[in-house]
């Protein structure tokens, strides 16, 4: 059975540390004039993006190309997919192309899982619906580790629309695996009802949590949530759950501020916070390439994947 990276829970602690250590080595490449390694020469990586996400696609594309893989970008727009071709048919096409790795972004939770049952290559989840985004969690953990060192016992606060956030899900799972203490902060409407079963704590009071946080991760809040009555107004959301300069001042000296992007400046994060020295938002982008290189190398570089998990139908 082939192995895939679909959920952050697919990574054991050893797996996760291997990815982070590998990413650390690969990050050096970014400082060189020749940013390319021959490692995945002859391997084919298909970027299968059913949702628009230029940032994530470019990050994966750069990662695969730096490892010399052949990259095929397959975006749903303008392709047969938008003409009603099923995911299954797309999977069969990928099989015909001999894809060794498939990076998939899809609006439906579980689409990568389904795909993994239909193709021989390794599937990397680049974000599925409101489920998970494991490479984002890896790059976040990588960023935290570079700034703060070992994550064991570190206090990470994730703020915002947890209910609809694949970033939050993956981060809770991965950070727990790595020994960090995660606290979710959100209005109760934006927390899943069964959050009690997750390996983290929950608070509705951002000000109470901030002074004890080593990391604050702000999630993007979408305006359409307001129309679905998750909160009364953007202004109220921002006042209760946004991170502004005053709130940032409550953080310990060493604490960092993260955001997976794209940001709504002035809504969940104030411009002065986003641009402050605590902010890792720019690093996160660069670190994304290193983390994704590590994942692609460990999944596709050898005779069999060194990380990840099989999918049972």
């Amino acid at each position: 059975m082939n192995r895939h990276l679909i959920s952050a829970a697919d990574l054991s602690r050893d797996d996760a540390l291997l990815v982070l250590d590998t990413a650390e080595e690969l990050a050096q490449i970014a400082d060189r004039s020749i940013k390319k390694l021959p490692t995945l020469r002859g391997r084919t990586v298909v970027n299968l993006f059913f949702e628009d996400s230029t940032r994530t696609r470019i990050s994966f594309e750069a990662a695969a190309k730096r490892l010399s893989a052949d990259v095929i970008n397959f975006s749903a727009k303008g392709s047969s997919v938008s003409k009603g071709e099923s995911l299954k048919d797309t999977a069969l096409t990928l099989e015909a192309m001999g894809a060794d790795g498939v990076v998939i972004r899809h609006g439906a939770s579980g689409a990568p899982h389904r795909l993994a049952g239909w193709v021989r290559g390794s599937v990397v989840n680049a974000g599925d619906g409101t489920h998970e985004h494991p490479t984002q969690a890896l790059l976040d953990a990588f960023t935290m580790r570079r700034r703060l060192g070992d994550l064991e016992g570190r206090k990470v606060t994730i703020v915002g629309d947890v209910l609809h956030s694949r970033v939050a899900r993956s981060n809770v799972l991965l950070l727990h695996t790595l020994g960090a203490d995660v606290t979710l902060v959100a209005p109760p409407t934006l927390v899943p009802v069964a959050v009690g079963t997750w390996p983290c704590s929950v608070s509705y009071d951002l000000d109470a949590v901030l002074p004890k946080s080593d990391v604050v991760m702000m999630l993007r809040v979408q305006q359409e949530r307001m129309n679905a009555a998750y909160f009364p107004s953007v202004r109220e959301y921002s006042r209760r759950y946004g991170l502004d300069g005053d709130r940032m001042a409550q953080l310990p000296e060493h604490a960092i501020v993260m955001h997976p992007g794209p940001m709504n400046r002035g809504v969940e994060i104030a411009a002065e916070v986003a641009d402050s020295v605590r902010s890792t938002i720019v690093e996160q982008v660069a670190n994304g390439v290193s983390a994704r290189m590590a994942v692609l190398y460990l999944l596709l570089g050898g005779s069999e994947p060194a990380i990840g998990k099989g999918v049972s139908e």
Partner: peptide, 16 residues
């Protein structure tokens, strides 16, 4: 990352 026998074994950790 430059070895020609990478595909004969599972991917392994990198050295410095």
């Amino acid at each position: 990352m430059y070895r020609d026998d990478l595909r004969l074994r599972p991917a392994r950790a990198l050295g410095r």
